[in-house]
Design a protein around this nucleic acid. Structure first.
Length: 715
RNA sequence: GCCAGUGUAGCUCAGUGGCAGAGCAACGGUUUCGUAAACCGUAGGUCGUGGGUUCAAUCCCCACCACUGGCUCCA
């Protein structure tokens, strides 16, 4: 229910501090390991991309001068720079950068031309074998193994070319800048491990990232912008504002504690969601955080997703019983896989070329063998049933839920359902737990405990389009409230080759539901991109992608079709014709999870929340601690408080300017300043965190305005 | 999980093989002021945890726990 692809080095352009909403970069993020670009694509490379791509060659040149054994793989330009993947004995660390950059500068100063040489495939293979490709010279005992592999990927008939600068020759289709001297300004930025072709099982390479620009000014601007983005980082602002804490020692990594001010954000969002969902005909439910193992064997999440779930809790205390259950588990596993094999074989048997398809033409022998097959299958099924029964008597295993859908399915199953009950929309801010890899945790954006703005809509096929459209409309409504203008809707579909593996094996249902979703999207005039092979295992989905301050891409919201799991739970409703039918299910989370959504909002607003969301809405500040002033100010505080405004006061003797400064640093949305002049006029002076002094206004007017702005959730 | 880096006061960061430092915040006093930072003082630490080397370790070495930037993953 939650995905997000990382987008390396891409940046959100949000240098202005003045409450500009954060927007995704205009360009598409580079894929993790770029698909092979066609020659056409390559010719579209911008000047900047050519500079960066050329800089990657210069980097390789420098590396080879320092470590001649280096072998190079990919070295493309990316969103904000370039990288080159390489393999060598020496482990590069940032301390090496100075040395490498010095060599690179020499190559740039030499101003060598980038010469293109077109060669035959045979010639290229020979050069790769002699270690010449991606090298400064021949290296007879060190063949250019990655280049050899890359050569294999170049289609027959496509020209093969080298690019040469100085002694360095690389297999490359270009294009490049004319000379190394055209690389205006560059800097190496980081080093990381990367897998060859992004394959975890493949060799692990060292990846050096760098960036390059036309000139020093542009490079400096880029780093300045990076600094700006860091100031907006939700982890930094979260600490400054006291929104959340992550106590890795006592609570655990990835499990944020919501501090009082962060809890305000959480509860304001929940209030918004509850109002919106109530208006849209949802009903609310509540479910436990745990479920028995059977829940997830039935839903199909186990065993495939077990790795992303917290390890199970075993309530079987007796050691003997436990080992017995282990045995039963193994027997079950064996029986199940045998059954799958048998069924597959049975299909083959019935559809086999040499096997007659009609019963009348079956020989006695064949008939007998088919009957034996059936008996075998039945025997296995009965074994499985009895093993499951046996297992039930041997204590229970519980899992922390990683998603709410199965619980909601059981709520659907808790009462008999009629077509008149549909669509049934079950909503819950459910708390889920996912055992994300340690290295993947990222502030609030990627966590292990998460509160989802979840709901499941059970509906008939006829109702589907309207329901799906209504969900999309809800997204758009929310995005308007938050001033979220640029995001990307990603429609994820299945891939035929994954049927039966990554995806439930229902080719027709896939096609049907994907067509339905596509139709809704087109009819609603929503801009989207369609991505194959990214669907959930139970159906197609739409994800909404946004970008964090430092440029990571995240799924902020999701809307998914599920045509598979309700059937696994045997969910049915009684239709008009008195038959039992399985409902379709829409999983949706327009506000994603509290963790990610608030993480995103913090960066989106740079901590300067609109009044309705601001943890500190109003602070009343007196010019000094004069008693008359305080007596004038107190009823204003009381009135705001009585109207549920988050207001506090500073009547202390601290110098006035310091009191203003304190409130500003806290990001108090509205400061009501009261001095002698205000008191005499029955006024207050308004100062906004974003907007500065607004002058004196009658106090009743100011209070009314504050209440109205909160009520309408004014941006 | 993998690669590289980091871990010193609540925060931002200095620092050294030989008594642990600053600014801000906190606390106590003084200050009575018109829109972003008044002054004086006090307190605050097992230098991430555990082990090793050493007469002596916050510093050097090893392991672990976390964090940061990537990679992989992401129902």
């Amino acid at each position: 229910m939650e995905t997000g692809k990382s987008c390396k080095n891409c940046l959100t352009f949000m240098a202005e501090e003045n409450q500009q909403p954060s927007n995704p970069p205009s360009a598409q993020p580079e894929p993790a390991n770029p698909e092979r670009k066609t020659l056409d694509d390559r010719n579209k490379m911008t000047e900047l991309e050519r500079i960066r791509h050329s800089c990657a060659h210069v980097l390789a040149t420098a590396i080879l001068r320092l470590w001649p054994d280096a072998q190079f793989a990919y070295g493309p330009p990316v969103e904000n720079g370039f990288y080159y993947d390489l393999e060598m004995k020496h482990r590069i660390s940032q301390e090496d950068f100075e040395k490498i950059e010095a060599e690179m500068k020499k190559e740039i100063k030499a101003n060598n031309p980038f010469e293109k040489v077109v060669v035959t495939r045979e010639q290229a293979i020979a050069d790769a074998q002699s270690g010449r490709l991606g090298g400064l010279a021949e290296r007879p005992d060190n063949a250019s193994k990655f280049k050899l592999d890359l050569l294999k990927q170049i289609p027959e008939g496509e020209p093969i070319s080298y690019f040469k600068n100085g002694d360095f020759i690389d297999l490359c289709a270009g294009p490049h800048v004319m000379r190394t001297g055209n690389i205006g300004a560059f800097k190496l930025t980081s080093v990381a491990a990367a897998y060859y072709k992004g394959d975890e099982k493949g060799p692990q390479l060292q990846r050096i990232y760098g960036t390059a620009f036309k000139n020093k000014t542009a490079l400096d601007e880029y780093f300045k912008m990076l600094e700006e983005a860091k100031r907006r980082d939700h982890r930094k602002i979260g600490a400054e504002m006291g929104l959340f804490a992550i106590d890795t020692e006592y609570v655990g990594p990835g499990m944020p504690l919501w501090l009082p001010k962060g809890t305000i954000l959480v509860e304001e969002l929940e209030k918004l969601a509850k109002e919106t969902e109530f208006a849209a005909g949802y009903v609310r439910v509540r479910t436990p955080h745990l479920a028995k193992e059977k829940m997830y064997t039935t839903s199909g999440h186990l065993p495939y997703y077990a790795e992303s779930m917290f390890p199970p809790m075993d309530f079987c205390e007796d050691a003997e019983q436990r080992s017995l259950r282990e045995q039963v588990n193994q027997d079950l596993l064996k029986a199940r896989s045998e059954l799958v094999a048998l069924k597959a074989k049975g299909e083959e048997f019935e559809l086999g070329i040499n096997t007659p398809t009609t019963r009348s033409t079956l020989s006695t022998q064949e008939q007998e063998s088919q009957a034996a097959f059936k008996r075998d299958i039945e025997a296995h099924e009965s074994t499985i049933r009895s093993l499951e029964h046996k297992k039930g008597g041997l204590g229970s295993v519980y899992y922390l839920k990683a998603m709410n859908c199965p619980h909601h399915h059981r709520i659907f199953a808790a009462e008999p359902r009629s077509y008149r009950d549909l669509p049934l929309r079950l909503a819950e801010y459910g708390c889920c737990y996912r055992y994300e890899q340690l290295g993947e945790l990222f502030g609030l954006m990627r966590v292990r405990s998460l509160n989802m703005n979840d709901a499941h809509i059970y509906c008939t096929e006829e109702q589907f389009a309207d329901e799906f459209r209504a969900v999309n409309d809800m997204y758009l409504k929310y995005f308007k409230i938050f001033g979220l203008e640029k995001y990307q809707m990603r429609f994820s579909t299945h891939a035929a080759e994954g049927l039966g593996k990554k995806y439930v094996n229902e080719p027709e249902l896939w096609k049907k539901t994907e067509d339905m979703v596509r139709k809704v999207l087109i009819e609603s005039g929503i801009n989207y991109v369609e991505v194959a092979n990214e669907a959930a295992f139970y159906g197609p989905k739409i994800d909404v992608q946004v970008w964090s301050a430092i440029g990571r891409e995240f799924t902020i919201a999701t809307n998914q079709v599920d045509f598979a799991v309700p059937a696994k739970f045997g969910l049915t409703y009684r239709d008009k014709d008195n038959s039992n039918k399985t409902p379709l299910c829409i999983h949706r989370a327009p506000l994603g999870t509290h963790e990610r959504f608030i993480g995103f909002l913090i960066e989106h607003y740079a901590g300067n929340f609109p009044l309705w969301l601001a943890p500190d809405q109003v602070r009343v500040i007196t010019l000094n601690d004069d008693e008359a002033l305080i007596n004038y100010a107190k009823p204003i505080v009381a009135e705001l408080r009585a109207n549920m405004v988050r207001v506090d006061s500073d009547f202390s003797a601290t110098p006035f300017k310091a009191k203003i400064s304190n409130a500003e640093q806290l990001r108090v949305h509205t400061m009501l300043v009261i001095g002698g002049r205000d008191m005499e006029a029955g006024a207050v002076s308004v100062r906004l965190h974003h907007g500065g002094p607004q002058g004196a206004k009658p106090k009743a007017e100011v209070i009314a305005q504050i209440l109205a702005d909160i009520k309408e959730r004014k941006a």
